[in-house]
Design a protein around this nucleic acid. Structure first.
Lengths: 147, 147
DNA sequence: AAGAGATGGTCAAGCAGATTGACCATCTGC
DNA sequence: GCAGATGGTCAATCTGCTTGACCATCTCTT
């Protein structure tokens, strides 16, 4: 294997990830929600039961201040609520509103649409293999690309 | 296929792309070059003969002003030279310096190192299939992820 | 040959999303 | 019950990018 092939794999990964992210965002917007891709990564964390700002920050790989600003935005747009934490009076439990859950579903639909196209191209089994292999090579990769 | 699986494929793609990008950058730094991941995408364009700022901007998917600022930085650090364009007096031809080419080689080595690990995990053939499939599903994807 | 519009590039100002640093309230362990 | 750790916010700042304005040069049409 040539060294330069390794860079082309990087480019292919970034192209595929970028394309998918872009089209999910488009699909979400087309379904009547406003947002930027970062929302999705917050939603996937919040969807499995609430989280604190600090937990969300860790999930996103940003400071808690940055996560807090994002949450401000999500609250302002009606996707998330800040509720008192049941056992820790310092903390607040972030929870998706009904609209937040609807937006999550819209993202899933949009993603499924694109992946559906890919399945037609490669076959459904191949796409499944792709996901499994990606999971094996970067099980703890960052949720968002570094650059 | 469940809709939610489509999002997990997105996450896996982003994780793998982010991990690879991060490790290439680490490897480049470890080899004595300073930079951020964006450099690499500029280098790959400049490596195949020079380019103008406008062409570089198109390659990177940013405005020509942003590309010009990046080039300022690359020139300041000694990776790139602005030379007069042979046939167009408005334009300038950007070219990698010897140091710029060395940095490109360092990135290729670093990338090959990571991909080598992946080959041990999946097998070399599987990695090649991975690259080909990614190329098929997003042949015109953006060089950098949208978010 | 010349003028109009397109194009390459830069300067300047502003914005968005992130960071660092300081701070307060509350929790936890000795 | 006190000391230190932790959750969260406010404020200031930074970085990378955008938009808008502008000049020099190219290209097309006549």
């Amino acid at each position: 294997m040539q060294n330069s092939d390794a860079l082309s794999l990087t480019a292919a990964l970034l192209a595929a990830a970028g394309e998918l992210t872009r089209r999910i965002n488009e699909g979400v917007v087309a379904r009547g929600f406003e947002g930027r891709p970062a929302y999705g990564y917050a939603f996937t964390r919040l969807a499995r039961g609430g989280a604190t700002v600090t937990e969300l920050a860790a999930h996103l790989g940003v400071t808690k201040q940055a996560a807090s600003q994002l949450v401000d935005e999500l609250v302002r747009k009606g996707y998330v609520e800040r509720r008192p934490h049941p056992v820790d009076a310092r903390a607040r439990l972030l929870e998706l509103t009904e609209r937040g859950r609807a937006c999550t579903r819209a993202a899933e639909e949009a993603a499924a649409e694109v992946v559906g196209e890919w399945s037609e191209l490669l076959g459904e089994g191949e796409v499944r293999v792709l996901r499994e292999q990606l999971g094996r090579i970067a099980p703890h990769g960052p949720v968002r690309p570094v650059w």
